[in-house]
Amino acid sequence: MTQTDQIVLPAKRRGGETLHFALRNKKLLVGAFVVLAALVLAIAGPILHDVSPTEYIGVPGQAPGGDHLLGTTMFGQDVYSQFVHGLRSTFLVGLLGGGLAAVVGMVVGFVAGYRGGWVDEILNMVTNILLVIPTLAVLIIIAAYLKVRGVMVEALFIGFTSWPWAARAVRAQTLTLASRDFVDLARLSGVRTWKIITREIAPNMSSYLFMTFILLFGGAVLAAATLDFIGLGPTDGMSLGLMMNNAVKWSALQLGLWWWFVPPGIGITAVVGALYVMNVGLDEVFNPRLRET
C-alpha cells in the first residue's frame, strides 16, 4: 500500500464502512434479492411472455403445468400473464404512490419542523386530522365514484392520502436536527431556508428518509390490493388485487381453482415482506447499536 492510499482512506471511510456492513447483512441482502427478482419478473415477464392477460385464449380452468405455466382462469385467461402484468402494477403503485407520499410527507415534515410557529401549528393540525381519518375508507368512496380507473390514478390518490405519519416522523427528526450547531451556523451565515433543509438537514437523516419511503411503498401496495379486491381496481388493466377479486367473484374457492388466487397473494406478500425485512437490515447497517455481534 502506498502513502497516497492511506491519506485518501479516511475521507472515504464512512461510505466504505456502510457498504462493508451492508454487504454482510443477511437481512438486507435477502430482502434486496427478493425485491430485485420480483422487479425483473415484473419488467421482463410481460415482454418475454407476450400473452394478453385479459384475452380468452385457452381451455377454461386448466391446472398449472400444461400449456399454461400457472394454468388458466375460469374463462381461459392465462394466469401467468395476469400475474406478471399484476406484478408490474404492484411496483408502479408502490413507486408512484409511495414516492408521492414520501415527497409530500417530507415537505410537510421539514417545513413544519424547521419553521415552527404558526406554520407548524397549522401543518400539525392538518396532519393530525388526516392521521385519524381512515384513509382507505376515503379511497373507497373516491374510487366508487370514478367511472374509469387506472393504476396511475389509484397510485395518485393513495400517495395523497398516506403521507401523514411520514410527515409526523420527519417533523420529529427535523426538530432534533434544527437546533444543532451546524444548522445554526448555516442560518447565521445567511443561507436560505430551503437550502438549509436540503443541504444541512435532509442529508443528515437520509437513511431515515429512505426507510420511510420503503415503508410507504409497502403500505401503498397493500392499500392498492385492498381497493382492487373490493372491486375498485383498475378498469383498464390488471393487478394482483384484481386477480383475487375475480377469483372470489367467480367462486374459484368452491371450484378448487387455487392457482387463480394463490399466486397473486404470494406476489404481494413476497414483495412487501422482503421490503420490510430489507428495512430491518438497513436499520442495522445505519444504526451501530442494532448490529448483531
Binding site: F261, V262, G265, G273, Y276
Partner: peptide
C-alpha cells in the same frame, strides 16, 4: 404483516 388480509382469509 406483509400478507394482505384477504389473501390469508382466502388461504
Amino acid at each position: 404483516t406483509a400478507t394482505p388480509y384477504m389473501w390469508l382469509a382466502l388461504l
